[in-house]
Computed example of a mutant assay.
Amino acid sequence: MIPSSYPDDAQMAQMAARMLLDIRAVHFNTDELFTHASGKQAPTYIDCRKLISYPRIRSTLMDFLTCKVMRAAGFEAFDNVAGGETAGIPFAALVAERMALPMSYVRKKPKGYGRAAQIEGEMHEGERVLLVEDLTTDGGSKLKFVDAIRTAGADCAHTAVVFYYGIFPETEARLAEHGVTLHWLTTWADVIAEARRAGDFTEATLTEVERFLSDPEGWRASRGLS
């Protein structure tokens, strides 16, 4: 069912941040750093995949994401909802269910056997596709998925995520140059504001995390990290 009412953007951002904190999807540690997929170390890590294990939270967030996209893009703006392999697949399925649309998913690269497909499920030429993912950092992986959708003959002008880092100023411009609009529920700034309000972490930890987020490369350099 498509939700008919929803909070404003600011309230959705705060509530989404609270939910991520409640399920301990947010990790801050300024002493024992996390290694990200890029190989770089950071005092921050977020695990949006945990959301699928919490039915009430995932349902609320998918209602929010569906409503936010439809409010911005239109109620009849899409013909297909695609998830990016792998984290985006469950969220795409949940959004597609709410929009009453077909769902497909996009592989990171064509599989090397059978049909050598990169798009799984039904996606037809000329369809307007919404790409759904769990999160985005600088938007790079989104462009690869968008290109695969366009290569298949469909159109993709919108991507939606639960969490957007919001620390790389070029991200939205980079996507816009590629003809893609980014929609999101909450960011690091929202999470830190909510964590500070509720006392989820010490002030010293939050202050140091903010220093990192304001200048990740400079923060790493100050610690002798590459």
Rank of each mutant, 00 (worst) to 15 (best):
M1P: 14
M1I: 07
P3M: 06
S4C: 05
S4R: 15
S5Y: 14
Y6E: 11
D8C: 08
Q11N: 13
M12Y: 03
M12K: 02
M15T: 05
D22F: 09
R24S: 14
A25C: 11
A25I: 07
H27Q: 15
F28D: 00
N29H: 08
N29C: 08
N29Q: 07
T30P: 06
D31K: 11
E32R: 09
L33N: 00
T35I: 07
Q41H: 13
A42K: 05
T44G: 04
Y45E: 05
D47F: 12
R49T: 08
K50F: 00
K50D: 03
K50Q: 12
L51E: 00
P55F: 15
R56E: 15
R56D: 12
L61N: 03
D63H: 04
C67W: 08
V69W: 02
M70G: 03
M70P: 00
A72P: 01
A72R: 08
G74F: 04
F75K: 11
F75P: 07
E76D: 15
F78S: 04
N80H: 11
T86Q: 10
A87K: 06
A87C: 13
G88L: 13
A93W: 07
L94I: 10
L94W: 01
A96S: 10
E97V: 05
R98T: 00
M99V: 04
M99E: 03
A100C: 09
A100G: 11
L101C: 10
M103D: 01
Y105S: 02
V106Q: 08
V106R: 06
R107K: 13
R107C: 04
K108Q: 13
K108L: 12
P110K: 11
G112D: 15
G112E: 12
G114I: 08
A117P: 07
A117I: 10
Q118F: 06
G121R: 06
E122A: 12
M123A: 03
E127Q: 15
L130H: 02
L131P: 00
V132M: 02
E133Y: 14
D134R: 02
D138M: 05
G140W: 00
L143I: 14
K144V: 14
F145Q: 01
A148Y: 13
R150T: 03
R150H: 09
R150V: 06
A152S: 15
A154N: 03
A160Q: 04
G166W: 09
P169N: 10
E170C: 06
T171V: 10
T171W: 08
A173K: 11
R174P: 01
R174I: 01
L175C: 10
A176Q: 08
E177N: 14
E177W: 06
E177L: 11
H178R: 15
G179D: 11
T181P: 04
L182E: 12
L182G: 14
W184P: 00
L185C: 05
T186D: 02
T187D: 05
A189D: 14
E194L: 15
E194G: 04
A195L: 14
A198I: 02
F201G: 05
T205A: 12
L206V: 03
L206A: 02
T207H: 07
E208S: 12
R211V: 00
L213N: 13
D215E: 07
P216C: 10
E217F: 10
A221L: 14
R223T: 14
G224S: 13
